[in-house]
Design a protein around this nucleic acid. Structure first.
Length: 557
DNA sequence: AAAAAAG
């Protein structure tokens, strides 16, 4: 299972100067040296927080400090302000600091190569809470992290990263500095979370020990596969192997009892299969030092994978000799799950994005009222499909497998080229469809919430909600987290993205209103679902040029 | 009724 197939296909050249996730790579050009320390980095406006090491001030009373620093950086004045506020519990010390970076508005040109694709993905507030004595300073460069030579080589030559993204700069020291504390970390969709925990796993593993030492649990098989691909790529020169614990294709099913025990050092998989392997005693957990929950809020949600997750965690904690570091990563943590997560990792460090910051204004969102379902389909066919194809790739989300299937059949029948994936299909077929989409062979993919989370494909510029995401025990309530994750499939790492929400009932209107209120963000409506001009206006407002000049857009091919 | 899982 630990094969070396790095599934990422080099697709296109895009300039970027910070770390990103797997499929976001540039075309390899070995002549290119890593750019850390070069001019490219110096003029970047990011991560000037490296000098910020927090020392603890032990006054008896709660105390809030705020300081602001402004720096003149030459050509474009950038001002950073950071405020540090300290809250003290009764006797345990907790620090919380929030770092906000305000930037001038004219620094983009030299970074994004003029294609207008990259904006400021890092322009966010992250609130950090650390516990205990540890003092962390943000990592400006990957060199600051004491990584092995082999790992650094993978980062630069395979991943082609230049320097840590913001979430990486802050979280990696927390993950990698002993004593290894647990961490709950929230960061925006497409900001490079995968790299954080993959690096964490790779650097905690002893390549000479041939048994599992790190584990990553994911909500879907597709995500497990994607994460494994990232890990294999980043860790290519380390010799570390990995085991993908997802259900075997029914065609070549072999009972676990007949299979050899796992000797790979990193296990990545879905909860059920991991449980199966451990309870069959074919997957040893006694030396697992780091346990990662990707999409952790869902993994710990009551209606998600809470039971499985807790069981696996307990199993590891009770069998592991040296103790196991737990990392919880997600873009979303609603209050209920957040509270639960903080009970699960009581003495850990925390990184949270301010709630107001969470809505992705980088993704332009629209709503379209349609009189009936047929009209929704016509909107996709006549107003969005062709545009989406030209501009990049499109994902259409439907609420059920059946709707996804129906939509796929309806569109295909009329000659609209698209594919569909959902959980009822065979694993082999799912893999094939995903691969075709990741390779850019297909442009429009219809799916369920199977792909709502984590699916990373930089070329997705358009998301369509054919159905709005609702809670299933309470269908008049929107599922805010799923909404955020769905639209987060586009606008990855600061690229341009747009999302269309198709509505056809009063209930849908209500749901959209609730979504707008929740994120405190007005979503403009495309006035008339039949009006070409209304859609063009929306797309133009989203930053896309019109059809005729599409060739210059520079984002499709 | 998304997702994961079952032998």
């Amino acid at each position: 299972m630990a094969d070396d197939s790095s599934s990422s296909a080099p697709t296109k050249t895009e300039k970027k100067s910070w770390a990103d996730e797997e499929s976001d790579e540039e075309v390899p050009s070995p002549a290119d040296p890593p750019l850390v320390g070069s001019k490219d980095v110096e003029q970047s406006e990011l991560n000037k927080i490296e000098s910020l090491s927090i020392s603890e001030d032990k006054c008896k009373d709660d105390k809030i400090e705020s300081l602001s620093i402004s720096e003149d950086k030459g050509k474009d004045d950038k001002i950073e302000s950071l405020s540090i506020s300290e809250d003290k519990g009764k006797d345990d010390k907790i620090e919380s600091l929030s770092i906000s970076e305000d930037k001038g508005k004219n620094e983009d040109e030299d970074r994004d190569g003029g294609d207008g694709l990259l904006e400021n993905p890092e322009d966010t507030d992250i609130k950090a809470v650390t516990t205990g004595e540890s003092v962390y300073s943000s990592a400006l460069r990957f060199e600051d992290l004491n990584l092995s030579k082999d790992l650094l080589k993978g980062i630069y030559t395979e991943m082609r990263f230049h320097r840590p993204s913001k979430i990486q700069a802050i979280s990696l020291p927390m993950i990698l500095t002993p004593p290894y504390k647990d961490l709950v970390a929230q960061a925006h969709n497409g900001s490079g979370k995968t790299t954080c925990f993959v690096l964490g796993m790779l650097s905690r593993v002893d390549p000479n020990k041939k048994l599992p030492q790190a584990m990553c649990i994911c909500p879907t098989r597709e995500l497990a596969q994607q994460n494994q691909a990232v890990l294999l790529k980043m860790g290519r020169f380390t010799g570390i192997t990995s085991f993908l614990a997802i259900p075997a294709d029914s065609a070549n099913y072999v009972p676990i009892s007949k299979l050899p025990p796992v000797t790979d050092q990193v296990v990545i998989g879905t909860p059920g299969t991991i449980k199966k392997w451990t309870s069959a005693r074919k997957l040893s957990t006694r030396e697992i030092k780091i346990l990662v929950f990707d999409e952790a809020d869902h993994m710990l949600a009551e209606d998600g994978f809470r039971d499985d997750s807790l069981r696996i965690m307990k199993e590891i904690q009770s069998s592991s000799t040296a103790g196991c570091q737990v990392l919880l990563f997600s873009a979303t943590f609603n209050d209920a799950v957040k509270a639960f997560a903080l009970r699960v990792v009581k003495n850990g460090n925390q990184l949270f994005v301010k709630k107001e910051e969470l809505t992705l204004d980088k993704v332009k969102q629209y709503k379209v009222y349609c009189p009936d379902e047929l009209a929704k389909i016509e909107v996709i066919k006549d107003k969005i499909f062709e545009f989406g194809q030209k501009v990049g790739q499109t994902i259409i989300f439907a609420h059920t497998r059946n709707t996804a299937k129906m939509l796929h059949q309806t569109l295909s029948k009329d000659g609209y080229e698209c594919t569909a994936v959902q959980g009822a299909l065979s694993q082999e077929y799912r893999d094939k469809i995903i691969k075709e989409f990741k390779d850019g062979l297909t442009k429009v993919l219809i799916t369920t919430d199977l792909l709502a989370r984590g699916f990373d494909q930089a070329q997705v510029n358009l998301v369509i909600n054919f159905d709005l995401p609702v809670k299933y025990d309470f269908p008049s309530e929107p599922d805010y987290e799923v909404y955020l994750h769905r639209i987060g499939r586009t606008g990855r790492f600061g690229r341009k993205g747009a999302a269309f929400n198709l509505m056809f009932s009063d209930r849908d209107r209500m749901i959209m209103e609730k979504i707008e209120r929740h994120f405190n963000h007005t979503i403009p409506e495309v006035g008339d679902w039949q009006s070409e001009e209304d859609f063009e206006k929306a797309l133009k407002d989203a930053g896309w040029r019109m059809m005729k000049s599409m060739g210059e857009l520079g984002c499709g091919e």
